[in-house]
Amino acid sequence: MEWDWEFVRQILPDLFSGLKITIIATVLGAAFAAVGGLVFAILRRSGNRAVARSASFLVEFIRGTPLLVQLYFIFYVLPDLGIRLPALLAGVIGIGLHYSTYAAEVYRSGIENVSRGQWEAAKAVNLSVRQTWVHIILPQAIPPMIPALANYLIAMFKETPLLSAITVLELMNQAKSLANSNYRYVEPMTIVGVFFLVISLISVMGVRMLEVRFAPKDDR
């Protein structure tokens, strides 16, 4: 099997347009997950037992089932209930919802890691609930979360090829259709692999930097 550079040059523009969709889906999905995760984390802390229980169950359920099947569910089942979503939107919702359950876990541990004394001190100096959260808890809880959240961002990026299964024309789908119409699999599939490898290696380096930057200060 020969590696054909001419063919590579031919398909690169299409692959780049696929990469653009991949990145758009990742960014939108991440935004969805960041907000959704916060909602899940707050619901799980709710004083109302029924709310907390059902939020926990939902999180467990979403984490315990494959993203691909959830995407199928959103893409094929919702239209029967009268909700018709464009493929990309369905994909963003699916991937965002899936990762919001992971983000919720990060938020939860981040919030729980703020020591009890901080809550008590806030109460002692008579801060309101809002002031406690905004000025005391969140500024301490968020920095340690950042590397973990960034890791999930990379994981999300690597899951976006699944969107090709619900007809989103992202990188993987572009590669597949190019491969099928030209009967050449080596170049498209390899280039997709290289794209993913390069982008995630760069982002992993970024995460390492974040980890150093936001490393918990050892003051024990």
Binding site: K158, P161, Y185, M189, T190, G193, F196, L197, S200
Partner: peptide, 13 residues
Amino acid sequence: GTSIFVQLFWVYF
């Protein structure tokens, strides 16, 4: 570093 999906397609095709 690479997606499981990409690996699978690479191995299979």
